[in-house]
């Protein structure tokens, strides 16, 4: 008598996976790095290298210290390193990058429960902590995404955007964010450099809002999240905040996520005759 696997339905699974999502987003950032190099900031690559190595190391060690299964393969650590590198100032010493990675990967992510459990976007939380720790350095040096090579980076971001939006399941959030932000900028523009503003809008839309963990589950909730993030971002910028405005906006909305999840609970369809698809 041959025995076969006896597991519960469904017996087929989609090809989607966590690793695909994270590595996909990491790959989508390659055009931005190409643009960074073409814009004359090849030094960023050194920071990227240190960030990636330290992110993988902190992810692995953090999981080992906390007796958890290490999940370096799913690409989350590398994605965090990539995003943090792009959020740092030009000519940033690599010690600051490594410290930021420690904050993002170990403190904000791993100590709050690891993949899927953290409350705040790790990269943004780390970036803002860095800014508060080294205010002088962050205010006096321009960001990688700003000023000098902004046009190159806009091109890179647009190519990345096409890559991100070509995937069906993450189309809605970036487009919605871009729409609201552009509307805000057009209506109440307050003397900001337009190219930099565009860069930040696109970067936030394609990369920073690509982390679903600290965002609401439902479509409605996500829309409110995105709307809130865009409006808060614009409000902070208008009041003279630095480019961490997007970060503060998203972190504030992160804090609202559990509430949004409960408030935007979908109304279940309850039939008078309740029938199941499976065998009894």
């Amino acid at each position: 008598m041959n025995t076969h696997l006896k597991t519960l339905s469904p017996h087929i699974r989609s090809r989607d996976s966590v690793a695909k999502r994270y590595w996909g987003l990491t790959l989508a950032s390659v055009p931005v790095f190409v643009a960074v190099i073409l814009g004359g900031q090849a030094g960023a690559l050194r920071v990227l290298l240190f960030s990636i190595i330290s992110a993988v190391a902190f992810d692995f060690l953090g999981a080992k210290i906390l007796f958890k299964k290490e999940r370096v393969n799913n690409g989350e650590a590398v994605l965090s390193a990539t995003l943090l590198t792009l959020l740092l100032p030009r000519n940033c010493p690599f010690e600051i990058a490594v410290f930021g990675i420690f904050l993002a990967v170990f403190v904000v992510k791993e100590l709050f429960g690891g993949t899927g459990s953290y409350l705040f976007h790790p990269v943004l939380a780390a970036r803002i902590f860095l800014q508060m720790s080294f205010p002088g350095f962050f205010e006096n040096s321009g960001m990688i995404l700003e000023e000098k090579s902004a046009l190159w980076i806009l091109g890179g971001l647009l190519v990345s955007g096409v890559a991100v939006i070509s995937q069906k399941n993450n189309r809605e959030i970036p487009l919605f964010y871009i729409m609201i932000s552009l509307l805000c900028v057009l209506l109440f523009h307050s003397g900001m450099e337009s190219l930099t503003v565009l860069n930040w809008i696109f970067f936030t839309a394609f990369f920073l809002l690509g982390d679903s963990v600290a965002m609401p589950l439902t479509r409605k909730g996500t829309r409110i999240f995105v709307l809130g993030a865009a409006l808060l971002n614009f409000f902070f910028e208008a009041k003279g905040f630095s480019m961490a405005a997007a970060g503060y906006a998203i972190l504030l909305m992160n804090a609202l996520t559990p509430w949004l999840d409960v408030m935007m609970k979908p109304a279940a369809y309850r039939a008078k005759i309740h029938l199941k698809a499976t065998y009894p």
Binding site: V18, G114, A214, L217
Partner: peptide
């Protein structure tokens, strides 16, 4: 069948 190991929920909303 494509049986794979379970991972934590990333709250993607799919």
């Amino acid at each position: 069948i494509r049986d794979k190991a379970e991972e934590p929920c990333i709250r993607c909303g799919a």
